[in-house]
């Protein structure tokens, strides 16, 4: 144990989050994941300036070529540079992943926490609403939204988030229901703390573990959902692209031009790995029961 840092921590009074950061910075795998994610995000942000070609620049005569010195990751059937397209696609995919998941997280956690905590009739009504939304084919829901509000990338993100929060709400509700009966919550009651403070300070922090794990699972599934919607013409439109779309097209031409599938596939898998490593690391880091070193 590094006694120096522990003493300093004790003097400064580290919070849960500071502790979490100390622990996370000692978890090499999680750091690799975090680094990779930051790298991908930075690339995406800088794409308009650093991409080797324009994303819609076609060279129909050249067609699909395997990786070469000019086109590191090859070109697609229209002769467009794959590296450029993956970079542009990453912008859309990462944005969908993060925004839609953030929406799902915000709605799901609050909704689930309230339902689980208040319980009784309120819980019954809130959960039946979730059941109804579950039963509703989400395609219809999204098409409806698109028709009413017009096609808009940001709206698409929210629409996906508005579908994905259901499972999150259920997970959080289950956690909260078992936490609610714990004695430390009852102790908080007997101290006279308000409901909202109890939910915020005593309930939600204790649901973090499963929530983080589920979040890291939601991000990739949201990215694939976007690809599906785009494939149906409800999402983004060519020549714009996303990883999901690239993979979809890649699958069609898998036999002749395998690199059209492999490279976007690698990009998506790398993100997935990074998220999982980071998610596991965060879960451990946020649990005070795991050792600090």
């Amino acid at each position: 144990m590094n006694s120096n840092s522990t003493i300093m921590a004790a003097e400064k009074g580290t919070s849960l989050w500071e502790d979490a950061w100390i622990k996370l910075s000692k978890n090499r795998l999680a750091l690799v994941g975090l680094g990779l994610l930051i790298f991908l995000c930075v690339i995406s942000l800088l794409t308009p300036w650093i991409a080797p070609y324009g994303y819609e620049k076609q060279d129909l005569l050249m067609g699909a070529t395997p990786p070469s010195a000019e086109h590191w990751l090859g070109t697609d059937v229209f002769g467009r540079d794959m590296l450029t397209r993956i970079m542009w696609g990453g912008r859309v995919s990462l944005m969908v992943g993060f925004i839609a998941t953030a929406v799902a997280l915000a709605i799901g956690v609050v909704y689930g926490a309230v339902a689980g905590y208040v319980g009784g009739r309120v819980d019954a009504v809130m959960m039946r609403l979730v059941d109804i939304l579950y039963a509703l084919p989400f395609m219809i829901f999204i098409i409806l939204l698109m028709v009413v509000f017009g096609r808009n990338l940001l709206l698409l993100f929210f629409a996906i988030g508005a579908v994905e929060w259901l499972t999150m709400a259920r997970i959080v509700r289950g956690q909260v229901m078992s936490l609610r009966k714990q004695e430390f919550v009852e102790a908080a009651h007997s101290l006279g703390l308000s409901q909202w403070i109890i939910i915020r300070r005593h309930i939600i922090p204790n649901t973090l573990g499963p929530v983080i794990v589920y979040t890291t699972l939601t991000i990739p599934s949201v990215m694939l959902l976007e690809a599906f919607l785009s494939f149906l013409g409800l999402g983004i439109q060519p020549p714009q692209s996303s990883w999901g779309l690239l993979i979809n097209y890649g699958v069609e031409t898998m036999e002749e031009y395998p690199w059209l599938l492999i490279f976007p596939g690698i990009a998506l898998s790398l993100t997935l790995f990074a998220l999982n490593f980071l998610g596991d690391g965060l879960r451990d880091a946020l649990d005070p029961r795991t050792a600090k070193d």
Binding site: F184, S190, L191, G192, H202, P205, N206, D287
Partner: peptide, 23 residues
């Protein structure tokens, strides 16, 4: 009840369950 709660408190049986593990 809040001001009254201050004047009466409870000690619970299980010291493993009665403390918030994240505080």
């Amino acid at each position: 009840l809040v001001p009254w709660r201050r004047r009466m408190q409870m000690i619970f049986q299980d010291p493993y369950a009665s403390l918030n593990p994240r505080m």
